[in-house]
């Protein structure tokens, strides 16, 4: 039961990594980092119960907080950088 959930979370992490690699604009990469961080917190709490060690929950708690601060810090870093015009077109995903 926990194993199936952790597999789903791991696959989503892989999809987030794929978005990080493919992402045209830098904000897609920050979105991928944000997704990856929250999924790590979820995975940590699921694995805490998979291996029966409730002290992993503290790790998940701190990771959720640090991930939020990190995403905001990175966003503040390139807040005013202008986006190149060719990023405004849609990359058609059919």
């Amino acid at each position: 039961m926990f194993f199936a959930t952790s597999i789903a979370i791991l696959v989503t992490m892989a999809l987030a990594l794929a978005r990080a690699v493919m992402g045209p604009s830098v904000y897609d990469r920050v979105l991928a980092v944000n997704m990856f961080g929250t999924k790590t917190a979820l995975l940590l709490s699921v694995v805490a119960y998979l291996y029966g060690r409730p002290d992993f929950l503290d790790l998940a708690l701190t990771y959720a907080l640090i991930n939020f601060v990190g995403v905001l810090a990175v966003l503040e870093f390139f807040q005013n950088r202008t986006v190149s015009p060719d990023l405004n077109k849609n990359d058609d995903v059919r």
Binding site: A4, A8, I9, V11, T12, L15, A16, L31, M35
Partner: peptide, 12 residues
């Protein structure tokens, strides 16, 4: 897990 997976697919 299904919702999380759908979110991953949606992001792609």
């Amino acid at each position: 897990g299904a919702f999380v997976f759908i979110g991953g697919i949606g992001a792609l």
